[in-house]
Design a protein around this nucleic acid. Structure first.
Length: 137
DNA sequence: GCCAACGTTGGC
DNA sequence: GCCAACGTTGGC
């Protein structure tokens, strides 16, 4: 199983909205970046991911699961763009801020810290464990 | 609200 | 195929 991180501006799509979708989940539409799309293409059903609030909050707030593998993005007719569906699994007991991630030496190489503009990123097993530990899981 | 980083576009 | 111009993301 692989791990990922999904960024969203809570103004546009927040964790609360994601939770409200329940087990049905929601299409992760709107990604218009090849690297991010390629990451979604690599996702398998059941893969886990962090849900990160960019701009407002700047923190990892919850855990999601891939509920449908990559398919055409219904928000556009452009066949280049595809996306997965994700559903909320659980909130983190304690949100992990970007500041904390930057301060943690074991997360120094994390894409969240190094490649701030990538909206869908891979997370290594080690990074996943560190964040779960910091979050109190 | 500003601006740095970075991705994309389009002229040559 | 290069690179300047431009647009967008996202932290501050």
């Amino acid at each position: 199983m692989a791990y990922w991180l999904f960024k969203s501006e809570p103004d546009a799509w927040s964790w609360d909205q994601q939770v409200a979708k329940g087990d049905a989940g929601e299409e992760w539409t709107g990604v218009r970046n090849y690297q991010a799309r390629n990451n979604m293409r690599a996702m398998k059903l059941g893969d886990k991911g962090f849900f990160y609030h960019s701009n407002i909050g700047k923190e990892i707030v919850g855990i999601v699961e891939v509920s449908a593998e990559c398919h055409p993005d219904s928000s556009t007719d452009d066949p280049r763009w595809e996306c997965v569906d994700i559903r909320a699994i659980r909130p983190l007991p304690r949100a992990i801020t970007l500041e904390e991630a930057k301060a943690e030496p074991r997360l120094a190489d994390m894409a969240l810290v190094k490649n701030t503009r990538l909206s869908v990123q891979p997370v290594t097993d080690a990074e996943w464990k560190v964040i779960c530990e910091l979050a109190g899981l």
